[in-house]
Design a binder for these strands. Structure first.
Lengths: 114, 114
DNA sequence: CGTATATTCAACCTATCGGTTTATCAACCA
DNA sequence: TGGTTGATAAACCGATAGGTTGAATATACG
């Protein structure tokens, strides 16, 4: 997963409407109209959100007569979960050990380089 | 963590410059100038990015003479990791079992409600 | 005191986001 | 064939994002 893809997936998940759409899709496939029903906005707005989710690889849309079925694509989320968890562990470890250790060692009389 | 906080953290992580800043901070605290050095943009731009990261709770800034030390705050990332992982598992489970099962059962002659 | 350094604030600019409305396309059906 | 429904496309709009430059603020230092 490239940095650009990571950015795209994060950005897609940063919108509460899109997260709600994904949560709805976890219960099963749905059409655009079905997905749009609970939201206080137009079907066109939802269609745009679905474009964002599709470009992020989080859903796939299949044509079926005049309907477009949307379903979850869990792969990018799995990748992202690994990404976040790896960073989380790295940060927590680093911060709890190396950095604090160095601070303890050096005391408080150090100043950053100019 | 409220939905709004989740949105804020996702949005903060959606920018590659900000993720690079966080990666740099994993190696230890740093000042604004130190953080800005590797990037081909102004110090003011980095300062804005740090505002975003601070509002998302991902860093804290402490005043020290004329410097502002930045350090990682791993808590929100831990929360987000749990959030993502929980969703991931839920989605994968749901999609692999309930939905596919229902599709198998019903066959292909069903149509969405209008 | 005056000056240099670190950082932020403010104003500005362009591009993108998230929504709207209107029009268009595609598929079914009477 | 013509009408209805599902969905997208296109044009538009206000707000925000992400960058710039220039000024302001705060602290250290000679």
């Amino acid at each position: 997963m490239t940095a650009d893809q990571v950015s795209t997936v994060f950005a897609a998940l940063a919108d509460p409407t899109r997260r709600a759409i994904l949560a709805r899709l976890a219960a099963g496939e749905a059409t655009v109209n079905e997905l749009a029903a609970p939201f206080p906005m137009s079907v066109q707005a939802i269609s745009k959100h679905l474009n964002v989710l599709e470009r992020a690889g989080l859903i796939v849309r299949t044509r079926e007569a005049q309907w477009r079925r949307c379903r979850l694509e869990p792969a990018p989320l799995r990748t992202l979960a690994e990404w976040v968890d790896q960073y989380r562990r790295f940060w927590e470890d680093r911060y709890d050990t190396l950095d604090e250790y160095l601070n303890e060692l050096k005391g408080k009389d150090d100043e950053p380089a100019q």
